[in-house]
């Protein structure tokens, strides 16, 4: 048994390690850009809603429809559908660079929706109290809205990260590597059962870890 593990480690250790790092790399870079794009979109969705400070039916409807459209397309289809755009933007449509664009396009609207619902939870009265104190909308967004929504935002982003981990598994199809690629190529195509099991185990641990960290952070931010 011990020999088996040692042998497995010898044979696959570095491959699995590299695949894990690739997955982490794709998730973190894609998440970073998804938040950079998604958070402002979420804020715009909240502010342009009916009855909010920058109520604007057109902006809201256009953005709302656009987000729904992208969210209707499954990742595996999106991956191929936007190939020309990916190539134009990154100069390549394969490898980690090639998959980042579809990952961001896939997650940003999702993050925008999650941000929207988190921000909507913020008590309207608090925003009003700050408005009554003569504080500008810009300051209210940063110091009241986002601040108060932080616990909820932490939980939302946890959901988004876990979704992203799932999406990266398909990245193998464009040769981007990662755990999904490993499980598919070695575990499935070459019948290496142990590789398959190990990959699944690592993914389970990863998702558990992310969820626990998210819960912990949200609790810490919540203060009640």
């Amino acid at each position: 048994m011990i020999l088996n593990i040692a042998a497995f480690n010898e044979r696959w250790g570095s491959t699995i390690w590299r695949a894990s790092l690739e997955t982490l790399q794709m998730v973190s870079i894609a998440m970073f850009f998804a938040v950079i794009i998604g958070l402002p979109l979420g804020i715009i969705l909240v502010l342009t809603r009916e009855g909010k400070s920058y109520e604007n039916k057109y902006v809201y409807q256009v953005l709302n429809t656009f987000i729904n459209m992208i969210r209707s397309v499954p990742f595996i289809i999106l991956l191929f559908f936007i190939l020309p755009f990916t190539k134009l933007l990154m100069g390549t449509s394969i490898g980690v660079r090639g998959v980042l664009v579809p990952l961001v396009v896939y997650s940003a609207p999702y993050v925008a929706r999650l941000m929207e619902s988190s921000l909507l939870e913020v008590d309207r009265g608090v925003l009003e109290a700050y408005e009554a104190m003569g504080i500008s909308t810009k300051d209210i967004i940063w110091n009241v809205m986002i601040r108060e929504a932080r616990p909820s935002i932490a939980l939302s982003l946890t959901i988004a990260i876990i979704g992203l981990i799932g999406a990266t598994a398909m990245a193998g199809l464009v040769g981007a590597g990662g755990l999904g690629d490993l499980a598919y190529r070695y575990g499935h195509l070459r019948y290496e059962k142990q590789v398959m099991y190990t990959t699944v185990l690592i993914l389970i641990l990863l998702v558990q870890g992310v969820q626990s960290a998210g819960n912990h952070l949200a609790k810490k931010l919540k203060k009640d």
Binding site: G125, E128, M133, G134, R147, K223
Partner: peptide, 16 residues
């Protein structure tokens, strides 16, 4: 508005 304070039924404090 800075010269006009306001208090509310719901207090409206930052929870965090």
């Amino acid at each position: 508005r800075k010269r006009i304070g306001m208090i509310f039924q719901g207090f409206n404090l930052l929870k965090t």
